[in-house]
């Protein structure tokens, strides 16, 4: 990602040179390409603006509706507060995404390092291919797998956690049967974002300058010390970018959450109890079919909240990456 951006920034400086050499009208292909590229760039902005505009416009009836009107929708709290409805959804969405990230990133870094620096060449190729393959599995399949196969297997683990670590609010028991809980969702989401985080991290680790690595080894570092001193610092911002990509996917994931979670609208930390959490995307998919026009508008308002969260996350990621750019492979 960062590399592409740098290229794009460099382009304006390089582009005029060949044009002036060839002289005005002859480089038609170049100009057409330039307009096409500019057009594509503008199109992205236009689509983004159109989505934002659509969300605002469609959410407006709910945003401006009276509390009485909103309270008439059966799944909105009786006090008719839209904020009171969106709040727990935002909490659940962020909780699920962060949980997935905490579970996935360490494993992803491990796999990426193994592929880039430990595995024999041939095995690394096969592994890399397999990881990419994981990314191609549709989320509804993950949902089915998580709900039907994985959840029953996790029952015992969650029961053990709540029995032995129940004093930690996160593992407060009793663990729900069947385990249609946030913790299960976190595990399945982690599996879903693992490929993207791994793939990007692997590419970044492979970019580590050979000289850095060999210098570390020449100074007597073991392989682990070399990874710690040369590879990880170099790849840090790349890993953060990768994590943010994963976070984006986890935030918006719909089908898997819809199929696994017993939803509820609270600000509970109890990851092992049913009916406590819900995410925005899954909630929209769940309530949309039977919603009346105002209900649809309220759901779109929650979509607007998700849009804002995603923008904030991406901006935060950009900021983190740019702050660390000086020490890393991003430049």
């Amino acid at each position: 990602m960062s590399g592409q951006r740098l290229q794009a920034e460099a382009e304006p400086e390089l582009a005029p040179a060949p044009l002036s050499v060839r002289g005005g009208g002859h480089d038609r292909a170049g100009r057409v390409f330039r307009w096409l590229a500019t057009g594509s760039g503008v199109l992205i902005l236009a689509v983004l603006a159109a989505v934002a505009g659509f969300l605002l416009l469609e959410a407006w009836p709910a945003l401006s509706a009276s509390r009485e009107d909103l309270a008439a929708i059966s799944w909105i709290p009786d006090d008719g507060s839209l904020l009171g409805y969106v709040g727990p959804l935002v909490f659940g969405t962020v909780l699920a995404a962060i949980l997935a990230l905490l579970l996935a990133v360490p494993v992803a870094i491990g796999i990426a390092l193994f592929i880039s620096h430990y595995a024999p060449r041939r095995l690394a190729d096969v592994l890399g291919y397999l990881v990419d393959l994981l990314a191609a599995i549709p989320s509804v399949v993950y949902g089915l797998w998580g709900g039907l196969w994985l959840a029953p297997k996790l029952q015992g683990v969650w029961g053990w956690l709540s029995d032995n670590l129940g004093f930690i609010p996160l593992f407060e028991g009793p663990a729900a049967t069947p385990p249609r809980v946030m913790m299960t969702v976190g595990v399945v989401l982690a599996v879903m974002i693992l490929p993207i985080v791994t793939a990007v991290s692997r590419e970044v680790f492979l970019q580590t300058p050979r000289l850095h690595e060999e210098a570390a080894l020449a100074l007597g570092a073991t392989r682990w010390e070399m990874v710690r001193m040369a590879v990880l610092p170099f790849g840090r911002s790349g890993v953060i970018s990768a994590s943010m990509l994963g976070l984006g996917r986890a935030l918006g994931e719909t089908m898997a959450v819809l199929m696994i979670l017993s939803p509820g609208l609270t600000y509970s930390w109890a990851l092992l109890m049913a009916g406590r959490h819900q995410t925005i995307a899954a909630n929209i998919a769940l309530q949309f079919p039977e919603a009346n026009p105002l209900g649809v508008s309220a759901l779109i308002a929650t979509g607007l909240a998700l849009f804002v969260i995603t923008l904030l996350v991406n901006m935060a990621a950009r900021w983190v990456v740019s702050r660390r750019a000086a020490f890393s492979g991003a430049n």
Binding site: S74, A176, R180, S262, G264, T266, M273, A274, G275
Partner: peptide
């Protein structure tokens, strides 16, 4: 109500769910 009134329960989408 068309929306289940008790909170904190096990629930699933649709009849098959």
């Amino acid at each position: 109500s068309g929306d289940w009134p008790v909170s904190g329960t096990q629930s699933a989408q649709g009849t098959s769910g």
